[in-house]
């Protein structure tokens, strides 16, 4: 029995909380408007003897945070170290939703794309060729309806197979124009040296080119805090033994 952690992210109002409820049996509030969930919420489900901790996040339009709820979501995807990130897409507005999915693919490599609201899409006559999207994106793409609970077994199975390595993800990396790519090449090694390998240096270069310094300050802060914990932990140990 092992423990894994899953992040549930996506545009606002795509059914993240509904899927979360379906998986965990919990009762996160849902509502047909963007911004219903403003806090992280953890839940647990078990599948084939493994325990999965799943985190419902506030919706976000991009990994560039604008408001506090979006920042919470982004920080968890970036710093929360989930074993798998599930990106929920709204089948009726795939174009905008894919915009976020592409960004997540740039950032981490264990991603599952979940196309939700497939029942609505069918009603509107929208047919989605998930096999093609899967080939193009290099990660599993699964169609579900969180509300009608269709496609969930497939999703659970895929999650466990990605974690166990049976399915290998090779997330599609978008190729930007030459100039941007050249700039990325300059920044990447510098970032690699400073930040380390925990977070994709390519993605960080893009954020930096985009002017997002705050993200880096946050990384530094987190590192400093970790160090502090280490040091304080050590001193605590010493005094304890000293008393002895």
């Amino acid at each position: 029995m092992s423990n894994f952690r899953i992040a549930l992210c996506g545009n606002p109002n795509t059914g993240k909380s509904t899927l979360f409820n379906a998986l965990t049996g919990l009762k996160q509030h849902t509502g047909n408007w963007a911004g219903k969930t403003v806090e992280m919420k953890k839940g647990v489900y078990t599948y084939k003897n493994d325990q999965y901790e799943i985190v419902d996040l506030p919706g976000t339009y991009s990994l560039y945070s604008n408001s506090l709820d979006e920042e919470i979501a982004r920080d968890f995807i970036v710093f929360g170290n989930p074993d798998i990130t599930i990106v929920i897409l709204d089948a009726t507005a795939l174009e905008r939703n894919l915009n976020l999915a592409l960004q997540v693919l740039e950032m981490t490599n264990r991603v599952i794309i979940c196309i939700n609201l497939i029942d609505e899409a069918e009603k509107l006559g929208i047919n989605i060729n998930e096999k093609l999207l899967m080939r193009r994106l290099g990660v599993p793409v699964i169609k579900i309806s969180a509300r009608n609970k269709t496609g969930i077994p497939m999703l659970l199975d895929t999650v466990s197979r990605v974690i166990s390595g049976v399915i290998q993800c090779t997330p599609f990396q978008i190729e930007y124009d030459e100039e941007t790519e050249r700039k990325i090449k300059i920044l990447e090694p510098m970032i690699d040296r400073i930040v380390g390998h925990d977070i994709s240096a390519r993605w960080l270069s893009l954020r930096l080119l985009d002017g997002d310094r705050q993200l880096f300050e946050q990384i530094e802060e987190r590192k400093a805090r970790n160090r502090e914990v280490l040091i304080n932990g050590a001193t605590f140990h010493k005094t304890k033994t000293g008393i002895k």
Partner: peptide, 17 residues
């Protein structure tokens, strides 16, 4: 460029009946 890619993916992978 992200949007162009998304647009292209939708064009290839989605059909409207």
């Amino acid at each position: 460029q992200l949007y162009r890619k998304s647009h292209q993916l939708v064009k290839e992978g989605v059909s409207f009946t």
